[in-house]
């Protein structure tokens, strides 16, 4: 059974609401409870459960890299299969790496780097090139969509 089957209609309503309409108020969970018709305590209990099962990762600010004055890029790296776990772990050591996936094809390690300053991004890229694997540097040219909400 996947977790989504474990969610009742109230959980679903909660998950849908807290993605875009989280109340910025000293008592956010009380307000949420008022909207849904359950107590503050129940909201908190349900959110704890949803966090435990991984449906809710966190409630917080979703940052825009460019707006914090930073710059980001996507790197596609060609790493021999037997080395990929080790290289991925090395790359994950950079706090600026936010996503890192193994994908099929010639370039198999795909990760995004978001740095607070352009200079830092260049520094990271130069450290990454010292690893000695061929890679593509694929910065965004135009943005068409950034995910905001996932309806459950």
């Amino acid at each position: 059974m996947t977790m989504i089957e474990a969610l009742d209609p109230i959980d679903r309503q909660l998950v849908n609401t807290i993605q875009l309409d989280f109340p910025l108020n000293p008592y956010p969970f009380r307000i949420l409870g008022g909207r849904i018709g359950i107590s503050e305590e129940e909201v908190i209990d349900r959110l704890k459960k949803l966090t435990d099962i991984g449906v809710v990762r966190k409630i917080g600010p979703i940052l825009s890299t460019t707006a914090i004055g930073g710059s980001s890029t996507l790197i596609a790296m060609q790493v021999p299969e037997y080395e990929v776990d080790r290289v991925a772990a090395r790359i994950n050591e950079f706090g600026e790496v936010s996503h890192n996936y193994l994908r099929p094809g010639k370039y198999n390690l795909w990760f995004t780097v978001s740095a607070r300053k352009k200079e830092r991004l260049h520094e990271i890229i130069s450290e990454i090139s010292e690893l000695g694997y061929p890679f593509l540097n694929l910065p965004v040219n135009r943005l068409f969509k950034i995910g905001v909400k996932f309806e459950v």
Binding site: F22, K58, I59, P61, I62, I68
Partner: peptide
């Protein structure tokens, strides 16, 4: 600077 304040799923 903050795109939204809310839950990540």
């Amino acid at each position: 600077i903050v795109r939204r304040f809310g839950a990540s799923i």
